[in-house]
Design a protein around this nucleic acid. Structure first.
Lengths: 257, 257
DNA sequence: AAACAACTTGTCTTTCTGGTCAGCAATAAG
DNA sequence: CTTATTGCTGACCAGAAAGACAAGTTGTTT
């Protein structure tokens, strides 16, 4: 297919700028009012242009809506793949994943909301796209998690539902921000809130995965055995029998602290 | 205030029946199309009555919407309070809480969706209600979780964000069911899926809380000390020194298994 | 400068939808 | 059986919104 060479004239630059401004404003309006509640008039007003001009750029509402949705999903799919992280530990991969997803909630709250509206409504527009683009990636990522489980790197966890939970827990900071504002008694969620949230959710997930725990427990195991061997060795060789319980008590007190 | 005695005539029974049928149908339509996308005509059709008749029962759309929302939230608030569970362990309380919330997603998927639409849109109708009814309960529950942390019953976790995560992880099974259907390659989420989900989410949360871990670790600790004492006791008394390492090896193999 | 393309706006039509109103039908009360 | 109340329907209306059309304006190319 021949790609038309787009000269960067004053017009074409303006066009691009205006298009992206329209998309951002449309995103905002769709997020707040849903597809049906958003009039072209309102979107145009948000972008400070006339309705007719808006229609000139996006022939109809459906098309505009699709563009907004697709932009969001492209970003999501692009940013959220396990694939390129084969070398890292599960914990590192998961931490990165959760962080990225939180960033999306923070940076594109409106896109997230439009996406949420769409899915809740039964994904009339997005269904095909989900099947063709999201599912393959999902299947791959699930396989990877399964392999982690088989290798004993993480706890036995339901891989599919792990993803559902991560998505939900992160997405909620975009979609349900109003609820949180009310419950936290704030006018708006701020940077600090998002940072706390990110920390809470990542820790939450990592702890649930048990990735960290295994290491901790291994440490404890090794620690115990080391002392045990030491003690047994000593007693097996040349310490008087009567001292046994005294040393034992010291040790027990130390461990229980 | 005088309460009017409602005689249970044929008419009043019909009225109640029809009212609740309308509410259920409205819930369904609102869930799928959002407030603005749902016409009174469509709701009436779903309930198999005429539009005028619908308006006879619910004078206008706004009112109908509020009723649907309020019914859902009342159920939610009623079912989800920590208060009456003071005696139980944190793990028991949390398990019950998550299970109840999952039940809501399973039993009232449409109500959940309407609620989600509403919150995502900025809670124009519900905001006051959230402040007056949900926040006080939230604050109480947060305090309880904090007290658990202070007592060392659970890991140090961000209480507010714990709730946000639980809500998100459970609510998602109502709101994003379509996405899950696509990704799991199913036509509909079935009982079995919900059971798996409930198990996954509860385990997930409990593990993240660390409530279970403490118990498990205590077990392990007791187990170790019991064996240790036994072994030391035996060696301290009447077993030959040479047998030490043999028995030790047996034990180590058993523990590491 | 002229011709052409890109952009912008005002006007109009059509469709949809929330809601009114007057009147008919079914049921309950006297 | 009659009357009053409650339940239901058809005809209608006003306003909102999508978007078609034509006319005018600005920018680009030759």
């Amino acid at each position: 297919m021949l790609e038309k060479i787009t000269k960067r004239t004053k017009q074409s630059i303006n066009r691009e700028e205006l298009e992206s401004r329209i998309l951002r404003c449309a995103e905002l309006v769709f997020a707040e009012k849903g597809y049906n509640g958003s009039s072209m008039e309102a979107i145009a007003a948000a972008a400070s242009i006339s309705k007719q001009n808006l229609i000139y750029y996006f022939a109809n509402k459906e098309l505009l809506y699709q563009r907004v949705l697709k932009e969001m999903l492209d970003i999501w799919i692009e940013k959220l793949s396990f694939l390129e992280t084969q070398g890292d530990t599960p914990e590192a991969v998961i931490r990165r994943y959760v962080r990225e997803k939180m960033q999306l909630s923070r940076l594109y709250p409106n896109g997230s909301k439009v996406f949420a509206h769409e899915i809740i409504s039964g994904a009339p527009v997005l269904k095909e796209y989900l099947i063709s683009h999201l599912k393959p990636q999902f299947d791959r990522d699930v396989e990877l998690v399964k392999s982690w489980i088989n290798k004993g790197l993480i706890e036995e966890i339901d891989p599919e539902h792990l993803f559902f939970t991560i998505w939900a827990a992160t997405q909620t900071y975009a979609d349900f921000s109003v609820q949180m504002e009310v419950l936290l008694g704030k006018h708006r969620l701020e940077e600090a809130d998002f940072e706390r949230a990110e920390l809470a959710v990542t820790d939450f997930v990592v702890r649930a995965l048990g990735a960290k725990k295994i290491i901790k427990n291994n440490f404890r195991l090794i620690f115990f055995f080391a002392i045990w061997f030491g003690v047994c060795f000593l007693y097996g060789l040349n310490v008087q029998k009567n001292a046994t319980f005294h040393h034992l008590n010291l040790l027990v007190n130390f461990l229980l602290n």
